[in-house]
Design a protein around this nucleic acid. Structure first.
Lengths: 167, 167
DNA sequence: CCTTGACCTGTTATGATATTACATAGATAT
DNA sequence: ATATCTATGTAATATCATAACAGGTCAAGG
Protein backbone atom coordinates (compact mmCIF):
# COMPACT_ATOMS: atom_id res chain seq x y z
CA UNK A 1 0.00 0.00 0.00
CA UNK A 2 1.28 3.52 0.42
CA UNK A 3 0.87 4.49 4.04
CA UNK A 4 2.81 1.78 5.62
CA UNK A 5 3.94 3.04 8.95
CA UNK A 6 1.50 5.75 9.85
CA UNK A 7 2.02 7.79 12.97
CA UNK A 8 0.03 6.34 15.83
CA UNK A 9 -3.22 8.17 16.21
CA UNK A 10 -3.54 10.51 19.15
CA UNK A 11 -6.58 8.98 20.73
CA UNK A 12 -8.97 6.57 19.33
CA UNK A 13 -11.62 4.43 20.92
CA UNK A 14 -14.30 6.66 19.65
CA UNK A 15 -11.48 9.21 19.45
CA UNK A 16 -11.41 9.97 23.15
CA UNK A 17 -8.77 9.52 25.81
CA UNK A 18 -8.87 6.37 27.86
CA UNK A 19 -6.93 4.10 30.16
CA UNK A 20 -5.23 1.94 27.61
CA UNK A 21 -3.48 -0.59 29.79
CA UNK A 22 -6.77 -1.42 31.36
CA UNK A 23 -8.61 -1.78 28.08
CA UNK A 24 -5.98 -4.17 26.72
CA UNK A 25 -6.05 -6.34 29.82
CA UNK A 26 -9.79 -6.54 29.71
CA UNK A 27 -9.66 -7.58 26.11
CA UNK A 28 -7.61 -10.63 26.90
CA UNK A 29 -9.71 -11.60 29.90
CA UNK A 30 -12.86 -11.30 27.86
CA UNK A 31 -11.36 -13.42 25.12
CA UNK A 32 -10.66 -16.27 27.50
CA UNK A 33 -14.15 -16.05 28.86
CA UNK A 34 -15.70 -16.21 25.44
CA UNK A 35 -13.59 -19.09 24.22
CA UNK A 36 -14.10 -21.12 27.38
CA UNK A 37 -17.62 -21.93 26.29
CA UNK A 38 -16.61 -23.15 22.83
CA UNK A 39 -14.43 -26.13 22.19
CA UNK A 40 -11.48 -24.15 20.90
CA UNK A 41 -8.09 -23.24 22.25
CA UNK A 42 -6.43 -19.91 22.74
CA UNK A 43 -2.99 -21.21 21.82
CA UNK A 44 0.19 -19.19 22.29
CA UNK A 45 0.28 -17.78 18.74
CA UNK A 46 -3.37 -16.87 18.89
CA UNK A 47 -3.05 -15.30 22.29
CA UNK A 48 0.00 -13.34 21.29
CA UNK A 49 -1.68 -12.20 18.10
CA UNK A 50 -4.58 -10.84 20.09
CA UNK A 51 -2.19 -9.10 22.47
CA UNK A 52 -0.43 -7.46 19.55
CA UNK A 53 -3.71 -6.15 18.20
CA UNK A 54 -4.77 -4.95 21.62
CA UNK A 55 -1.51 -3.13 22.24
CA UNK A 56 -2.21 -0.75 19.45
CA UNK A 57 -5.25 1.33 18.81
CA UNK A 58 -4.96 0.98 15.13
CA UNK A 59 -5.52 -1.59 12.45
CA UNK A 60 -2.46 -3.70 11.68
CA UNK A 61 -1.69 -5.41 8.41
CA UNK A 62 -1.13 -9.15 8.49
CA UNK A 63 2.53 -8.74 7.64
CA UNK A 64 2.98 -6.24 10.39
CA UNK A 65 1.51 -8.71 12.85
CA UNK A 66 3.69 -11.41 11.36
CA UNK A 67 6.86 -9.44 12.00
CA UNK A 68 6.00 -9.07 15.63
CA UNK A 69 5.14 -12.73 15.96
CA UNK A 70 8.39 -13.75 14.30
CA UNK A 71 10.28 -11.47 16.67
CA UNK A 72 8.67 -13.39 19.50
CA UNK A 73 9.90 -16.71 18.17
CA UNK A 74 6.88 -17.83 16.20
CA UNK A 75 6.98 -18.77 12.54
CA UNK A 76 7.72 -16.09 10.03
CA UNK A 77 5.65 -17.15 7.06
CA UNK A 78 2.38 -15.43 6.15
CA UNK A 79 0.06 -18.32 7.02
CA UNK A 80 1.14 -18.07 10.65
CA UNK A 81 -0.34 -14.61 10.91
CA UNK A 82 -3.28 -15.17 8.62
CA UNK A 83 -4.39 -18.27 10.45
CA UNK A 84 -4.26 -16.69 13.87
CA UNK A 85 -6.04 -13.60 12.60
CA UNK A 86 -8.70 -15.66 10.94
CA UNK A 87 -9.28 -17.52 14.15
CA UNK A 88 -9.73 -14.30 16.08
CA UNK A 89 -12.08 -12.88 13.49
CA UNK A 90 -14.14 -16.06 13.40
CA UNK A 91 -14.62 -15.86 17.12
CA UNK A 92 -15.43 -12.20 17.19
CA UNK A 93 -12.24 -11.20 19.00
CA UNK A 94 -10.95 -9.15 16.10
CA UNK A 95 -12.28 -7.57 12.98
CA UNK A 96 -11.00 -7.20 9.52
CA UNK A 97 -10.99 -3.69 8.14
CA UNK A 98 -11.12 -4.25 4.45
CA UNK A 99 -10.52 -0.74 3.36
CA UNK A 100 -7.10 -0.93 5.02
CA UNK A 101 -6.36 -4.59 4.40
CA UNK A 102 -5.84 -4.73 8.11
CA UNK A 103 -7.05 -6.19 11.38
CA UNK A 104 -7.98 -4.70 14.69
CA UNK A 105 -8.90 -6.11 18.08
CA UNK A 106 -12.58 -6.09 18.83
CA UNK A 107 -13.38 -3.58 21.54
CA UNK A 108 -16.79 -4.92 22.35
CA UNK A 109 -16.36 -8.64 22.27
CA UNK A 110 -18.96 -10.62 24.05
CA UNK A 111 -21.71 -8.17 23.37
CA UNK A 112 -23.69 -8.98 20.33
CA UNK A 113 -21.78 -6.86 17.96
CA UNK A 114 -22.20 -5.50 14.50
CA UNK A 115 -19.38 -3.05 14.34
CA UNK A 116 -19.00 -0.09 12.06
CA UNK A 117 -15.56 1.29 11.48
CA UNK A 118 -14.87 4.96 11.19
CA UNK A 119 -11.55 5.50 9.53
CA UNK A 120 -9.85 8.88 9.55
CA UNK A 121 -8.18 9.50 6.23
CA UNK A 122 -5.85 11.98 7.84
CA UNK A 123 -4.44 10.29 10.93
CA UNK A 124 -5.45 6.71 10.24
CA UNK A 125 -7.27 6.31 13.51
CA UNK A 126 -9.86 3.57 13.41
CA UNK A 127 -12.83 3.69 15.73
CA UNK A 128 -15.19 0.80 16.21
CA UNK A 129 -18.55 2.40 16.60
CA UNK A 130 -21.55 0.57 17.98
CA UNK A 131 -23.68 -0.05 14.96
CA UNK A 132 -26.74 -1.87 16.14
CA UNK A 133 -28.96 0.72 14.54
CA UNK A 134 -27.04 0.53 11.29
CA UNK A 135 -27.09 -3.22 11.29
CA UNK A 136 -30.78 -3.36 11.91
CA UNK A 137 -31.44 -0.97 9.03
CA UNK A 138 -29.30 -3.23 6.89
CA UNK A 139 -31.24 -6.29 7.99
CA UNK A 140 -34.48 -4.61 7.04
CA UNK A 141 -33.13 -3.69 3.63
CA UNK A 142 -31.89 -7.22 3.00
CA UNK A 143 -35.09 -8.72 4.24
CA UNK A 144 -37.10 -6.95 1.59
CA UNK A 145 -35.03 -8.73 -1.03
CA UNK A 146 -35.22 -12.08 0.67
CA UNK A 147 -31.53 -12.01 1.41
CA UNK A 148 -30.27 -13.52 4.64
CA UNK A 149 -27.27 -11.74 6.10
CA UNK A 150 -24.67 -13.81 7.85
CA UNK A 151 -21.85 -11.32 8.17
CA UNK A 152 -21.52 -7.66 7.46
CA UNK A 153 -18.80 -5.10 6.95
CA UNK A 154 -19.68 -1.52 7.54
CA UNK A 155 -16.89 0.96 7.03
CA UNK A 156 -16.72 4.69 6.57
CA UNK A 157 -13.90 6.97 5.55
CA UNK A 158 -13.77 10.57 6.65
CA UNK A 159 -12.35 12.92 9.22
CA UNK A 160 -12.16 12.31 12.94
CA UNK A 161 -12.96 15.21 15.28
CA UNK A 162 -9.31 16.13 15.86
CA UNK A 163 -8.39 16.23 12.20
CA UNK A 164 -11.52 18.05 11.25
CA UNK A 165 -10.72 20.76 13.78
CA UNK A 166 -7.16 20.98 12.53
CA UNK A 167 -8.40 21.57 9.01
CA UNK B 1 -8.22 -15.83 -4.48
CA UNK B 2 -10.07 -19.12 -4.55
CA UNK B 3 -13.24 -18.74 -6.55
CA UNK B 4 -11.89 -17.24 -9.66
CA UNK B 5 -14.32 -18.08 -12.39
CA UNK B 6 -17.62 -18.55 -10.64
CA UNK B 7 -20.66 -19.61 -12.57
CA UNK B 8 -22.71 -16.61 -13.57
CA UNK B 9 -25.49 -16.04 -11.11
CA UNK B 10 -29.00 -16.89 -12.23
CA UNK B 11 -30.56 -13.53 -11.64
CA UNK B 12 -29.34 -10.66 -9.72
CA UNK B 13 -30.38 -7.04 -9.63
CA UNK B 14 -32.04 -7.52 -6.33
CA UNK B 15 -32.00 -11.18 -7.35
CA UNK B 16 -34.95 -10.90 -9.67
CA UNK B 17 -35.35 -11.43 -13.37
CA UNK B 18 -35.05 -8.40 -15.57
CA UNK B 19 -34.49 -7.15 -19.07
CA UNK B 20 -30.75 -7.11 -19.08
CA UNK B 21 -30.04 -5.58 -22.45
CA UNK B 22 -32.14 -2.66 -21.50
CA UNK B 23 -30.53 -2.14 -18.13
CA UNK B 24 -27.06 -2.16 -19.66
CA UNK B 25 -27.99 0.36 -22.32
CA UNK B 26 -29.51 2.65 -19.77
CA UNK B 27 -26.39 2.46 -17.71
CA UNK B 28 -24.30 3.84 -20.51
CA UNK B 29 -26.78 6.56 -21.37
CA UNK B 30 -26.95 7.64 -17.77
CA UNK B 31 -23.18 7.72 -17.57
CA UNK B 32 -22.91 10.12 -20.47
CA UNK B 33 -25.54 12.32 -18.95
CA UNK B 34 -23.78 12.48 -15.63
CA UNK B 35 -20.37 13.19 -17.08
CA UNK B 36 -21.66 15.85 -19.45
CA UNK B 37 -22.01 18.24 -16.56
CA UNK B 38 -18.49 17.73 -15.28
CA UNK B 39 -15.41 18.59 -17.22
CA UNK B 40 -14.28 15.04 -17.78
CA UNK B 41 -14.23 12.70 -20.72
CA UNK B 42 -15.68 9.27 -21.20
CA UNK B 43 -12.77 8.04 -23.29
CA UNK B 44 -12.80 4.75 -25.18
CA UNK B 45 -11.08 2.74 -22.45
CA UNK B 46 -13.33 4.16 -19.80
CA UNK B 47 -16.42 3.63 -21.85
CA UNK B 48 -15.48 0.09 -22.71
CA UNK B 49 -14.66 -0.62 -19.08
CA UNK B 50 -18.09 0.53 -18.05
CA UNK B 51 -19.65 -1.61 -20.76
CA UNK B 52 -17.75 -4.63 -19.52
CA UNK B 53 -19.02 -4.11 -16.02
CA UNK B 54 -22.55 -3.55 -17.25
CA UNK B 55 -22.52 -6.68 -19.37
CA UNK B 56 -22.22 -8.85 -16.34
CA UNK B 57 -24.33 -8.86 -13.25
CA UNK B 58 -21.44 -9.68 -11.05
CA UNK B 59 -18.40 -8.06 -9.62
CA UNK B 60 -15.31 -8.38 -11.79
CA UNK B 61 -11.73 -8.30 -10.60
CA UNK B 62 -9.44 -5.70 -12.11
CA UNK B 63 -7.44 -8.34 -13.91
CA UNK B 64 -10.57 -9.85 -15.33
CA UNK B 65 -11.54 -6.46 -16.72
CA UNK B 66 -8.02 -6.02 -17.98
CA UNK B 67 -8.14 -9.23 -19.98
CA UNK B 68 -11.26 -8.09 -21.74
CA UNK B 69 -9.82 -4.68 -22.44
CA UNK B 70 -6.65 -6.21 -23.83
CA UNK B 71 -8.73 -8.49 -26.04
CA UNK B 72 -10.34 -5.35 -27.43
CA UNK B 73 -7.01 -3.85 -28.30
CA UNK B 74 -6.35 -1.71 -25.26
CA UNK B 75 -3.25 -1.96 -23.14
CA UNK B 76 -2.70 -5.10 -21.17
CA UNK B 77 -0.96 -3.83 -18.09
CA UNK B 78 -2.72 -3.47 -14.74
CA UNK B 79 -2.73 0.32 -14.57
CA UNK B 80 -4.90 0.43 -17.67
CA UNK B 81 -7.70 -1.32 -15.84
CA UNK B 82 -7.13 0.23 -12.46
CA UNK B 83 -7.16 3.74 -13.83
CA UNK B 84 -10.35 3.28 -15.76
CA UNK B 85 -12.01 1.62 -12.80
CA UNK B 86 -10.89 4.34 -10.44
CA UNK B 87 -12.34 6.92 -12.77
CA UNK B 88 -15.68 5.18 -12.83
CA UNK B 89 -15.74 4.79 -9.08
CA UNK B 90 -14.81 8.42 -8.52
CA UNK B 91 -17.73 9.49 -10.64
CA UNK B 92 -20.18 7.12 -9.08
CA UNK B 93 -20.56 4.97 -12.19
CA UNK B 94 -19.13 1.90 -10.54
CA UNK B 95 -18.46 0.63 -7.07
CA UNK B 96 -15.69 -1.28 -5.51
CA UNK B 97 -16.73 -4.37 -3.61
CA UNK B 98 -13.94 -4.79 -1.15
CA UNK B 99 -14.90 -8.17 0.12
CA UNK B 100 -14.36 -9.54 -3.37
CA UNK B 101 -11.54 -7.28 -4.49
CA UNK B 102 -13.79 -6.51 -7.37
CA UNK B 103 -15.78 -3.86 -9.16
CA UNK B 104 -19.33 -3.64 -10.33
CA UNK B 105 -21.29 -1.16 -12.39
CA UNK B 106 -23.46 1.15 -10.40
CA UNK B 107 -27.11 0.38 -10.97
CA UNK B 108 -28.45 3.60 -9.57
CA UNK B 109 -26.08 6.21 -10.84
CA UNK B 110 -27.35 9.71 -10.83
CA UNK B 111 -29.51 9.21 -7.83
CA UNK B 112 -27.81 10.21 -4.65
CA UNK B 113 -26.58 6.85 -3.72
CA UNK B 114 -25.18 5.12 -0.69
CA UNK B 115 -25.18 1.56 -1.85
CA UNK B 116 -25.13 -1.57 0.24
CA UNK B 117 -23.93 -4.76 -1.37
CA UNK B 118 -25.50 -8.08 -0.66
CA UNK B 119 -23.15 -10.83 -1.68
CA UNK B 120 -24.31 -14.42 -1.96
CA UNK B 121 -21.62 -16.72 -0.67
CA UNK B 122 -23.06 -19.56 -2.70
CA UNK B 123 -23.56 -18.22 -6.21
CA UNK B 124 -21.51 -15.01 -5.99
CA UNK B 125 -24.37 -12.82 -7.07
CA UNK B 126 -23.94 -9.24 -5.96
CA UNK B 127 -26.95 -7.04 -5.48
CA UNK B 128 -26.74 -3.34 -4.96
CA UNK B 129 -29.45 -2.57 -2.49
CA UNK B 130 -30.74 0.93 -1.87
CA UNK B 131 -29.30 1.83 1.47
CA UNK B 132 -30.47 5.29 2.27
CA UNK B 133 -31.85 4.10 5.57
CA UNK B 134 -28.62 2.32 6.40
CA UNK B 135 -26.55 5.25 5.44
CA UNK B 136 -28.58 7.62 7.51
CA UNK B 137 -28.26 5.38 10.56
CA UNK B 138 -24.54 5.35 9.95
CA UNK B 139 -24.43 9.12 9.72
CA UNK B 140 -26.23 9.41 13.01
CA UNK B 141 -23.80 7.03 14.65
CA UNK B 142 -20.79 8.90 13.30
CA UNK B 143 -22.27 12.21 14.24
CA UNK B 144 -22.38 11.26 17.89
CA UNK B 145 -18.63 10.77 17.79
CA UNK B 146 -17.99 13.96 15.88
CA UNK B 147 -16.84 12.01 12.86
CA UNK B 148 -17.61 13.32 9.40
CA UNK B 149 -18.23 10.62 6.82
CA UNK B 150 -17.05 11.21 3.28
CA UNK B 151 -17.38 7.76 1.79
CA UNK B 152 -18.83 4.53 3.04
CA UNK B 153 -18.70 0.87 2.20
CA UNK B 154 -21.53 -1.27 3.35
CA UNK B 155 -21.31 -4.93 2.46
CA UNK B 156 -23.03 -8.04 3.67
CA UNK B 157 -22.34 -11.68 3.03
CA UNK B 158 -25.08 -14.26 3.16
CA UNK B 159 -27.51 -16.23 1.06
CA UNK B 160 -29.61 -14.89 -1.77
CA UNK B 161 -33.22 -16.08 -2.03
CA UNK B 162 -32.47 -18.70 -4.67
CA UNK B 163 -29.60 -20.27 -2.80
CA UNK B 164 -31.42 -20.17 0.47
CA UNK B 165 -34.33 -22.05 -1.08
CA UNK B 166 -31.96 -24.56 -2.61
CA UNK B 167 -30.45 -25.27 0.80
C1' DC C 1 -1.24 27.79 -37.38
C1' DC C 2 1.34 26.12 -33.88
C1' DT C 3 2.78 25.99 -29.24
C1' DT C 4 1.74 25.12 -24.53
C1' DG C 5 -0.05 22.64 -20.96
C1' DA C 6 -3.34 19.44 -19.13
C1' DC C 7 -4.71 15.05 -19.30
C1' DC C 8 -4.82 10.38 -20.98
C1' DT C 9 -2.70 6.00 -22.32
C1' DG C 10 0.83 2.52 -22.48
C1' DT C 11 4.70 -0.01 -20.48
C1' DT C 12 8.20 -1.61 -17.23
C1' DA C 13 9.06 -2.86 -12.94
C1' DT C 14 8.01 -3.79 -8.40
C1' DG C 15 5.45 -3.92 -4.09
C1' DA C 16 1.88 -5.61 -1.04
C1' DT C 17 -1.52 -8.92 0.17
C1' DA C 18 -3.12 -13.68 0.48
C1' DT C 19 -3.48 -18.75 -0.34
C1' DT C 20 -2.22 -23.72 -1.47
C1' DA C 21 0.03 -27.68 -0.30
C1' DC C 22 2.50 -30.48 2.40
C1' DA C 23 5.26 -31.95 6.42
C1' DT C 24 5.64 -32.13 11.45
C1' DA C 25 4.18 -31.79 16.08
C1' DG C 26 0.88 -31.50 19.87
C1' DA C 27 -3.56 -32.43 22.06
C1' DT C 28 -7.66 -35.55 22.87
C1' DA C 29 -10.23 -39.45 23.20
C1' DT C 30 -10.79 -44.22 23.45
C1' DA D 1 -0.65 -46.38 23.67
C1' DT D 2 -2.49 -45.41 19.64
C1' DA D 3 -5.56 -43.42 16.48
C1' DT D 4 -7.39 -39.01 15.38
C1' DC D 5 -8.08 -34.41 15.08
C1' DT D 6 -6.18 -29.94 15.35
C1' DA D 7 -2.56 -26.70 15.17
C1' DT D 8 1.93 -25.06 13.55
C1' DG D 9 5.87 -24.35 10.41
C1' DT D 10 7.68 -23.73 5.83
C1' DA D 11 8.17 -23.35 0.83
C1' DA D 12 6.29 -21.96 -3.11
C1' DT D 13 3.16 -19.33 -5.61
C1' DA D 14 -1.04 -16.77 -6.71
C1' DT D 15 -3.44 -12.55 -6.65
C1' DC D 16 -4.07 -7.72 -6.22
C1' DA D 17 -2.25 -2.98 -6.66
C1' DT D 18 0.91 0.99 -7.39
C1' DA D 19 5.03 3.92 -8.72
C1' DA D 20 7.48 6.00 -12.23
C1' DC D 21 8.26 7.41 -16.65
C1' DA D 22 7.62 7.93 -21.82
C1' DG D 23 4.88 9.17 -25.46
C1' DG D 24 0.44 10.71 -27.42
C1' DT D 25 -3.94 13.49 -27.85
C1' DC D 26 -6.52 17.49 -27.57
C1' DA D 27 -8.21 22.02 -26.64
C1' DA D 28 -7.03 26.97 -25.53
C1' DG D 29 -4.53 31.01 -26.23
C1' DG D 30 -0.96 33.42 -28.60
Amino acid sequence: MHDHTPPPPKDDPAFAKHDHHRCAGEGLARAEEILAGRKVRLTPVRRRTLEILLEDHRALGAYEVLERLAADGFGNQPPVAYRALEFLVDHGLAHRVRRLNAFTACRHSGQDHAPAFLICRQCNAVAEAPADAVRSALDTTADKLGFVIERSNIEALGLCPACRDAA
